[in-house]
Nucleic acid binder design. Structure first.
Lengths: 213, 213, 213, 213
DNA sequence: GATTAACCGAGACGGTACGTCACGTCTTTAA
DNA sequence: TTAAAGACGTGACGTACCGTCTCGGTTAATC
């Protein structure tokens, strides 16, 4: 449950049956259309970008994807689950590159983070997911999964720093991660300031010295 | 409740006409009922606390406040606007106490912040407001107002620190505010860790040394 | 309760207090504005003509008449009462002219009737009154009054015919009146055919021979 | 009930798609529930009979018919359209029986008409429909339809009379129909007299002699 | 003149129904 | 068995209008 196995697993939580089709049980009846999956996710991303999550209705997604609503609900249990899946599919894999020093790793990671956040692509999706997750245990769980996924590279950076003796070994890694990531989220969702590389640099200058050994 | 009510209402952008009543206003026609304002906001807070934003319907708010729906919509243009107003009225005035040093001021402020956040009173409201604000300019504006209001005491603390020479004068105050507040928001909405005083202390230890002169 | 006394009385049922002011009780306090009465009735007629009774709201009547809603309700107890009053004020007195023969009297009366009906002035008001009267005793009563008022000249024509020996004395006058007037109402409200003088003539040719002595 | 239901529905202009089903229609998707149609119309008739058109709310109709409001509005565009449809379905097919002579046919038809009118079943509905139709083209059209439907048997009676030489061939049939039916409508809606068989007989005596050859 | 009672405008209020919309489910026929 | 189409129950939304009520202010007749 630690490594990439868990990761992979959680990432297919919702897509209930596509994989393994060929391996076991030739599955009588008409097989699910793979095109449909893509069309639905793609339409979801498009629409969420255009009118926001809230303005996006399942009927319109179905229409845009040239798919029936039932087909969507056969794959994802709710609007939120669909959007979460779309969100995941949009991020792609996060690469944990080791550039040799904590500072340069942080610069790379936070730079990447701010870039992603600035692109408005899924800009209004997160708030909605947070909102709904507050009342929906299953979505909460999926969302936690997603968050953990996003935090992992940063955790790795700090762990490597500790191993190399660059970083104090008495810090709580989770807290430091919060300190680095929190301000970005806050600005994005509420405070509304600039999210460019300069901000990333400022955060590093503000926090890093106190975690260095 | 009259004095603070009026004060609070000043922040309620949506309450289109109440403010400044005392200064100059022959104000023709039947005046808006102050009782209604209070009853509505109070019912909103109650319900949002009990069943969350999503589970709260305008009809029930009206019923609980012994008020007609029209009376609510005469004051606030939407459910969101109402809840935002309720949120504001719930905070009440934030007191900017000067305890003599930046560190103690920060401890007080962040301690208070974490306390407020832990109390689930309006726990699920904020995400929804953020969500809707993403596509509703007016609400966005009101929300910004609210955020600015919340940031003000922290800004004051830092400014006093600069005056006193405790804090470096080459920092961007806004950035530091983000660094302090962001992690709380992030934990609350996404990361989901502890928000107790220990976390506040950790953030101070992590950031404060680098802003001190 | 038989003669013109009743008639006069019933016709002022709604206008509760204007008349007789001078005779008794000089009525302390500010007297009702006569202009308001006129403006309201006039606005009512205008609007009923433009958008129909149903599309006409009391707020708009008040606005158009430059009068407050309370001023309207002080005079008439409901929308329907107002419209009925407007309807009456629009008809004016019906003249019962004696042209010497039943046929010529009928031609005059029905010609006038068709003319009035064709003018769309109050074309949509009657149906609504009928509608509401079905559930409102007071309005029903006022409407009956109005109907009786409209029938009277025709009754007089037939009574004169009987006196003169032109008309059989074994007919029920009420039935004959219904036979003459009914088709106009029916066409106007439901069947929707022409209402010109030709139709009037056709009705006379169809019915009169059988009532002649 | 299936056969006559379909037949009745043909007249229901508003029921946008049911008719012609049998001729050609693979009709994809879930078909409209026939039960729902019947339940709605039936509930409408019941309620309109009990509390009148005005007192009848769509929510209650829906509740009584165990159907959602949306399901009603999917079939009829407004309260009025629904009631009109209910009115039609209530009449059922009018039978045009040939009793051999115009007089006996008329006696049968007008007797039936007066019976129907006396039963207060839909007694207050017609005025409202007339009222609304005055400003609603679509409803006007449907109402005209309905009226034409009701007139047809009487027209047939007169045409047979002409063929048989019983009735003059220089009359305008429409005018004669108005002469016969108008008085009933007038009494019902405005004048308010008796509508029993005696009245029917009186109308026949008054008008028929002048249309006989 | 001062009082007083009734009026006036503006507009807020409770109530009730309206018609719309979206979600997620269910029911058909076709592939 | 899945797909497309689309009807369905549920339930909240925001709007409209009615008739009432509450303000501050005005207008005569009475004291």
């Amino acid at each position: 449950m630690t490594a990439s196995a868990a990761m992979t697993l959680t990432f297919v939580t919702e897509a209930r049956q596509n994989e393994l089709v060929s391996i076991e049980s030739p599955r009588r009846g008409r097989p699910r259309s793979v095109d449909a999956d893509e069309a639905i996710l793609s339409a979801t991303l498009e629409l969420a970008g255009e009118v926001g999550f809230r303005g996006m209705s399942m009927d319109v997604v179905a229409e845009r994807a040239k798919v029936s609503k039932a087909t969507i609900y056969r794959r994802w249990s709710s609007k939120e689950a669909l959007v979460l899946a779309a969100l995941r599919s949009a991020i792609g894999p996060l690469d944990d590159v080791d550039l040799g020093s904590v500072r340069s790793d942080l610069e790379a990671y936070l730079g990447d983070l701010s870039t992603r956040m600035q692109s408005g692509k899924m800009r209004d999706v997160l708030p909605h997911l947070i909102d709904v997750a507050a009342h929906d245990a299953q979505l909460r769980c999926s969302l936690d999964d997603y968050v953990a996924h996003r935090r992992r590279p940063l955790i790795a950076i700090l762990e490597r720093g500790i191993e190399r003796g660059e970083v104090r070994d008495d810090i709580e890694i989770g807290v430091v991660v919060d300190a680095f990531v929190g301000p970005f989220i806050y600005r994005k969702l509420l405070a509304g300031g600039d999210l460019g590389p300069k901000f990333a640099q400022q955060m590093i200058d503000l926090i890093l010295p106190n975690v260095e050994a």
